[in-house]
Write a protein that binds this DNA or RNA. Structure first.
Lengths: 164, 164
DNA sequence: TATTGTTATACTCTATAACTATA
DNA sequence: TATAGTTATAGAGTATAACAATA
């Protein structure tokens, strides 16, 4: 890594006051190519954009999908439990649930056992909608497979299994 | 505390319906486990947190590091060129550069060839600082290696090479 | 005292639009 | 007309702090 050949040759081409370089096709990333985080971030942005586009007609974003899926699979969870499981701030989840409740996909049920907390459930409408969202999300997942290859996607899931 | 917590959770598990579940250890992710995007997003958050922590003393975040690295390796780039190469909005880059210029790490040099644009350069101070940032970033990268394994990290970089 | 849900604030980041000065 | 840089705004998302009701 250190000072690279790209850096040296680039200096020859552009001194102070010279014309700025704006040809994107020979701009080196230098040390960034050795950072997993850079590639992971770019990939994550691509994935989210595809997800948002694929579920655009139903207006569901990745975070909303994850909340609905976890509530659907675990009816009666408290807000704290959902927030912890998905790594969402509980203050942020309040607004997410406000939106999902306004759309009649989720309901907060006041708990009698612990009157501070709410038990979260999908509405019947929410159950039907989630089934559709899952079909669209599976379509998105096929896009991922087409993009990086079936075997690479499987390897990726295996490598990152500990981060779920 | 443990006895009380155990009793409480036992009561909640036994409760029929209204009592919210809040034990995080048996909450299933359902369809999320099959989505590459979910794992990738969680991993990316972990990586950025480690990066921010590891470079906390020098107060450099991932995006700032990527901008400095690309300018360092390609002196004289225009703002548009940097923005396009790194996938940053040009409006956002303005503020990033304002901050880096205030810290005397980067300078905007007015171009004589095209007086609309600026050629970007590291200051001598910026060169020295970037060398330090790169050492810390390499340390961060070793954390990634420890977290997922050397071979897995290499596979990840190979799989995602197209997203740089 | 501690926790749940809530409200509020601030800062990062993304996505636009519009403005200026140049080309 | 189009482009580079700038300014502004709006919406996500993250990170905190504080508060009321309840445990």
């Amino acid at each position: 890594m250190t000072a690279t050949a790209a850096q040296t040759s680039a200096r020859k081409r552009a001194g102070n006051g010279a014309a700025p370089r704006d040809m994107a096709d020979d701009i080196g990333l230098d040390a960034l190519v050795g950072h997993a985080g850079y590639a992971v971030r770019r990939f994550q942005i691509w994935i989210f954009q595809d997800f948002i586009r694929t579920l655009g007609n139903v207006d569901i974003r990745p975070t909303q999908y994850s909340v609905l899926t976890v509530i659907g699979a675990n009816p009666g969870l408290s807000q704290m439990a959902v927030a912890k499981r998905l790594g969402i701030e509980r203050a942020r989840l309040v607004h997410l649930l406000d939106s999902l409740e306004q759309r009649k996909l989720v309901k907060r049920v006041k708990s009698k056992a612990d009157r501070r907390s709410h038990a979260l459930h999908l509405t019947p409408q929410g159950e039907t909608a989630l089934a559709k969202f899952k079909r669209l999300a599976a379509e998105h997942e096929r896009h991922v497979e087409e993009k990086i290859g079936k075997e690479n996607r499987a390897q990726l899931l295996r490598i990152l299994a500990g981060f779920t």
